[in-house]
Write a protein that binds this DNA or RNA. Structure first.
Length: 327
DNA sequence: AGGAGACATTACGCATCGTT
DNA sequence: AACGATGCGTAATGTCTCCT
């Protein structure tokens, strides 16, 4: 007599892709096979490049953050927050040949740079990722949520790297101390912020392995999760429409189905209800990171995905809150 | 083009000092 | 206040397997 285990399909919605996968709940039990597998674990050795999992994790974080800020700005600021975020994309380079190891660059220069972005320019949330240039130098892509003048960024970064002597090294060759070591621009009016950013994140190989962490971000961002929903009638209807549209590319194997294309735009036209839920999720993400934190010891509960809510509802039916306007 | 889970190591985030 | 320094806590990181 077979036991039926809770099994259901989940849809995850990004701005530019929709992922469908199956969730099977089973009791946590370590098989002998699993124990054997664990012998092969590398125990925290960094291999020097961005793994598939890392890339996936980055998308899970950046998608809700960037989209929530963009939607917030579009919505004429109904939510009152102390800081009105403004997305900025910064690139940092070393103006002379790298003489220190990667960890030292990050610990001394990048760390100083990030701390001072927060202190001087009211940066609250940030994300960074590093890669190597053709010349072997490490360089960084950073996203922050403040407007900062390019001169200020350059000045701050040059101070940061001079702690390791890179401005002086530059001066020897170029006879001045103001290297153009940074690039900065606003993130705006892009069809897909996700594609744009993930392009930087996953530009492939790199010239050499990188020591230490490849990427990181502010603490709050790590709490964010993309919108997920158990596939109900409504979601199934949307998926059906998407699968019949010529505007999406489809990838499918036995475990997963992925549709790539303008999911957000399509949903806004073909399923107002799911569109609303998606925006609501992003607005919750927004509040989570930009509303002042409660002072007391009681932490606010983490955002619950629909998946979690669904699992709860199996045990206990609970009324759903209707939110009037997400942003 | 997935997710979860196994987990030791340690790089990095950031709160909190101390100093000016 | 502003900023440098420090120390502690946290989570990123690798690979592999199963998907009851």
């Amino acid at each position: 007599m077979a036991i039926t285990l809770p099994e259901y399909e989940v849809a995850r919605l990004y701005q530019n892709s929709l992922v469908i996968y199956k969730v099977i709940e089973f009791p946590p039990r370590k098989t002998d096979r699993q124990k054997e597998n664990e012998k092969n674990l590398t125990r925290g050795q960094f291999n020097g490049y961005l793994s598939v999992k890392g890339k996936s994790r980055i998308k899970k974080i950046l998608s809700p953050w960037l989209n929530s800020v963009i939607e917030y700005r579009k919505a004429k600021a109904k939510i009152v927050v102390p800081k009105r975020p403004y997305l900025t994309f910064i690139t940092l380079t070393l103006p002379a040949a790298q003489k220190h190891n990667d960890c030292e660059i990050k610990r001394v220069a990048l760390n100083y740079f990030l701390i001072n972005l927060q202190r001087r320019y009211n940066v609250q949330q940030y994300f960074w990722i590093c890669e190597t240039q053709k010349n072997g130098n490490l360089h960084f892509h950073i996203i922050v949520d403040s407007y900062i003048k390019w001169q200020s960024v350059r000045e701050l970064w040059n101070v940061s790297i001079e702690k390791l002597g890179y401005v002086s090294a530059f001066e020897v060759e170029h006879k001045h101390r103001n290297p153009n070591s940074t690039d900065i621009h606003k993130i705006q009016n892009l069809d897909s912020i996700e594609s744009y950013v993930m392009k930087y994140v996953s530009k492939g190989g790199g010239e050499r392995v990188i020591r230490g962490k490849i990427w990181d971000c502010s603490k709050d961002l790590k709490k964010l999760k993309p919108y997920e929903t158990v596939i109900d009638t409504e979601t199934a209807a949307l998926i059906n429409k998407i699968s019949h549209s010529i505007n999406f590319r489809k990838f499918e194997d036995e475990k997963i189905t992925v549709f790539s294309g303008d999911i957000l735009g399509f949903t806004s036209v073909h399923s107002r209800e799911i569109y609303r839920k998606l925006l609501t999720h992003w607005s919750e993400c927004f509040k989570e990171i930009y509303l002042p934190k409660p002072k007391s010891n009681q932490d606010r509960p983490p955002i619950e995905s629909e998946k979690v809510q669904y699992i709860r509802s199996i045990n206990k039916a609970s009324p759903q809150l209707e939110i009037d306007c997400p942003f």
